[in-house]
């Protein structure tokens, strides 16, 4: 494993820990898109089915188990423990995820390494992950401002995607490893994050600094 891959995985881990820590400290899930979090549960479960068929390493297995359990736990927190049902704000989370699911399914049927259930679901998880943050980003755009939680969370997720790019370069040149599906969907995802950070910078950071005396 190279340093970029490790840093990428650690950023991903950090994003989830930030989310969990903030929810449990504030005892609130305000501002977090339930839809995005449910999409991540689907992403992790469909991608990590190979837990049952293939052993890669202890690190790989533990990380997969952590991602599945933490994503389910976060959905539980939003849906039951610190429910947002009484809040009007949930109406802001109205992105049509059906399109994301249908589009990812279609893409996975067309683009896959092998037409087997495991490979199709693996491809599906990549396509879905590439767009899973959209409901969260849409929610942020509607409210007009992001609190520290969502900003830090999305920043760490963006960092995770950014680190995976030099990781792919490294692996291509050092190991001859090139996973074209992972790279292509990963680039789409990174573009979404860069677009978000650009808009966020323009609207929030610049607006804030222009207000200062």
């Amino acid at each position: 494993m190279n340093i970029f891959r490790i840093l990428g995985d650690l950023s991903h881990l950090t994003s989830i820990i930030i989310l969990l820590h903030t929810i449990n400290t504030n005892k609130s899930t305000t501002g977090i898109s339930l839809k995005t979090q449910i999409l991540y549960v689907i992403v992790f479960i469909t991608r990590y089915l190979d837990l049952f068929t293939k052993f890669i390493s202890v690190y790989n297995t533990l990380m997969k188990i952590f991602f599945i359990i933490s994503s389910v736990y976060i959905v539980y927190l939003i849906q039951y423990k610190y429910s947002q049902k009484h809040m009007v704000k949930q109406d802001l989370d109205n992105f049509k995820v059906e399109y994301l699911l249908a589009g990812s399914l279609l893409a996975s049927l067309i683009f896959n390494y092998k037409f087997t259930p495991l490979e199709i679901l693996w491809s599906f998880s990549l396509w879905l992950e590439s767009v899973a943050i959209l409901p969260q980003l849409m929610m942020l755009t509607r409210t007009g401002e992001a609190d520290m939680l969502t900003t830090n969370y999305i920043f760490c997720l963006g960092l995770y995607r950014a680190f995976y790019i030099p990781n792919w370069f490294y692996r291509y040149f050092a190991e001859g490893h090139f996973d074209k599906l992972a790279v292509f969907t990963g680039l789409i995802q990174t573009l979404l994050y860069s677009d978000f950070f650009y808009i966020y910078y323009k609207n929030v950071i610049q607006a804030r600094s222009s207000k200062l005396p």
């Binding site: 995985d9 890669i56 390493s57 490893h177 996973d179 599906l181």
Partner: peptide, 10 residues
């Protein structure tokens, strides 16, 4: 046969 690419990333 094995698949072309190992899915060893997370």
């Amino acid at each position: 046969s094995e698949s072309d690419v190992d899915h060893d990333e997370l």
